[in-house]
Design a protein around this nucleic acid. Sequence first.
DNA 1: GTGCTCATGTTAAAATTTTTACATACCGAA
DNA 2: TTCGGTATGTAAAAATTTTAACATGAGCAC
Lengths: 207, 207
Amino acid sequence: MTEKKHRIPDVVIRRLPVYLRYLQQLMSYDVDTVSSQQMGHDLNLNPAQIRKDLSIFGDFGVKGMGYRVSELADKLSKILGLDKEIPIVLVGVGNLGAALCRYNRYQKSATKIVGLFDGHPAKIGQVHGSLEVRPMEELVDFVRQNNIKMAIITVPAAAAQSVCDALVAAGVKAILNFAPVLLNVPEGVRVQNSDVTVELQALAYYL
Amino acid sequence: MTEKKHRIPDVVIRRLPVYLRYLQQLMSYDVDTVSSQQMGHDLNLNPAQIRKDLSIFGDFGVKGMGYRVSELADKLSKILGLDKEIPIVLVGVGNLGAALCRYNRYQKSATKIVGLFDGHPAKIGQVHGSLEVRPMEELVDFVRQNNIKMAIITVPAAAAQSVCDALVAAGVKAILNFAPVLLNVPEGVRVQNSDVTVELQALAYYL
DNA sequence: GTGCTCATGTTAAAATTTTTACATACCGAA
DNA sequence: TTCGGTATGTAAAAATTTTAACATGAGCAC
């Protein structure tokens, strides 16, 4: 397959990080080849779907063999844009924010939190990992000066939209939002919501 | 429509909590009626989809008027099983676990964390909110004795499967999993994964 | 080189999900 | 009580996503 025929479906994009992590795991076990069948088995996915997803981006496999693990991992990293480090700001250093911040330090992922912000005066100056919490007033300048395109929002619901607006105004293009509100963003800005309450409530249905 | 024609799609179930929260918000503003059009506008969804989702469970609307907010909220609560309190155990009281635990206390949701467990000896006995961290050895008995059907896993990846097995053995039917691994569960047990890394990486694609 | 095996990439079919379109029926006003 | 305005519930169409099926070609043994 050549390059992007059409816009690539979101569902596909969301599976790529899953493939990537799986491949990285295989690498750590020194596996150097894997078939779509094996992947499908391990990831609970249809092998054809995996092949189809991958073939959107190129002919990565070898007929009769499968995929070379580290090669495919590289390709996926590049496709996702994870071959360069992606700096992130986190706004709202409450419990969850602090947890994410700590979590981020242990991973050797391309996405890296480089700035912490909070509107609560008592929080300013607190240190989490190697980062000091900065006041909201500095947010826009910081984002602009460091050319930051991605942000995590972990402020209370009531503050989320105004934080979001500030981020967008400063040039942020992708937001992972933990506040339980629907954020309003202009075209071209991507929001991914993550909401524990919603997930628990949906799970409750199946009991 | 009458009762469940077929199995109800997961996508629909996952939208119900979103509707529910929206309705609760309307209630807090003393709005007592809402149309699918209004809802669709506010939630960024197609009005027909909302009507269709709701009509699966019954004729909740009034022609020419829309939906009575508090009535619909009640119905949705009941459908999701949120009319009774749902007790939850949380396993793995690290940063994220503690954050979720704290978060849960502030919400007045039907889902309620009633037990905290951790395998790390240093954590045992720590108090978070009104709950004391218990040792893993007590997990199975606690779950059985309190007839707990839902759990949150916030342990490291390496421990997640064995925790999961213990939970399932004790009778848990729904698991919200924050560990970055695919859990293996028998038929009839539901797992919902929540994985910040995956979400950040998927977002990266859009930059 | 030749031939055999195997797993890909891809085309076609099936299944699912979303959107459109509209007949129906409720509410409120006259 | 009748009528007009309006938003539902649903049937049909469109779009999307998943799954099945298979021709193709790479690697390996000989």
